[in-house]
């Protein structure tokens, strides 16, 4: 391995992508942590978390705030993806393809000794794509089921009541899946197998690129990677995209606002049951 391979670096994640990741990391962890006592209320861990965070009502508030942060993160991600695709005309390198299935299978065969070569992959490996799309699926399920639980009165004006406990079941099941998938897949893939610091430094060395994303490196070297359009083209596309994005932003903000404020589900205080007077003697005082 030459020293050039170690010193030559390529930008993998610009700073705003890293902030995006950090936002998701924080909100996801908070959601998982505050979700645990709600899914397993009697457990030792659950109770410990509960007491640490000041009780169930406080815990739910924190859970909701983390969810709001994740909603903003998602909205932001949609906007920048739109910019990337419609203005910059970047390759949609995160889209899954048949090649990913082939790569995955080849990697597995290589591991168990049925294939000689580990697959050579591009900007995003099948492992990364799997995780990204799992997150998209998870966010969709958690968002939809979360809405049902956050706003059951509104939801049941249009939907059967049974969907509320069904949403609770799905929210819990999906949460377990998501947290464990992160622990198994993400932990192993980017922390244990090799501590991949690209999401924090933004950079990868040529050696790392050669190792993990050889096809992307080849594209960069061949000059066929994402090429920045000229300024005039960008300006022209921006003129179209920005109004749409503004509209989309307003729509998403309204959506988030509605999510949070659709209803006052329950009265915070309930009247004590006063069915009758307490002291009602049958006969005058003896």
């Amino acid at each position: 391995m030459s020293t050039k391979n170690q010193t030559q670096t390529y930008e993998r994640f610009p700073v705003w992508r890293r902030i995006e990741h950090f936002t998701m990391l924080l909100s996801f962890s908070t959601l998982g942590l505050t979700g645990l006592p709600q899914k397993y209320p009697g457990s030792t861990m659950g109770v410990a978390v509960l007491n640490f965070l000041g009780g169930i009502e406080n815990l739910r508030n924190i859970h909701h705030i983390a969810a709001i942060i994740m909603m903003f993160g998602t909205a932001w991600h949609i906007l920048v993806m739109g910019y990337s695709v419609f203005v910059m005309h970047d390759k949609m390198s995160m889209l899954p393809s048949l090649q990913d299935a082939k790569d995955g299978l080849q990697a597995l065969f290589y591991n168990i000794g049925f294939a000689k070569e580990y697959p050579k992959m591009g900007r995003y490996t099948f492992e990364e794509k799997m995780e990204y799309w799992a997150f998209v699926w998870g966010a969709g399920v958690m968002g939809a089921t979360g809405f049902l639980m956050w706003n059951p009165v509104t939801a049941t004006q249009y939907l059967p009541g049974e969907l509320v406990p069904a949403a609770k079941a799905a929210h819990g099941g999906e949460a377990v899946l998501a947290v464990l998938a992160i622990i198994i897949w993400h932990m192993y893939g980017v922390h244990i197998k090799r501590f991949n610091k690209a999401m924090f430094t933004g950079q990868q060395t040529e050696a790392e690129m050669l190792h993990e994303h050889p096809l992307e490196l080849a594209e960069i070297k061949a000059g066929t990677a994402n090429r920045r359009p000229d300024a005039a083209t960008i300006r022209k596309r921006q003129m179209i995209y920005f109004p749409i994005a503004a509209f989309l932003t307003l729509g998403m903000l309204a959506g988030i606002f509605g999510f949070i404020n659709a209803e006052e589900t329950a009265l915070t205080t309930i009247e004590p049951l006063t069915e009758s007077q307490i002291y009602v003697p049958q006969t005058p005082n003896p």
């Binding site: 059951p152 009165v153 049941t156 004006q157 939907l159 059967p160 009541g161 049974e162 969907l163 509320v164 406990p165 079941a169 209803e263 006052e264 589900t265 329950a266 009265l267 309930i270 009247e271």
Partner: peptide, 21 residues
């Protein structure tokens, strides 16, 4: 409706009436 004053007809089915699904 004592606690959820805006609840409509479908709402009560959100409570599983002590049944295991």
């Amino acid at each position: 409706q004592r606690c959820h004053p805006d609840a409509t007809a479908n709402f009560s089915a959100a409570w599983m009436s002590h049944y295991d699904p």
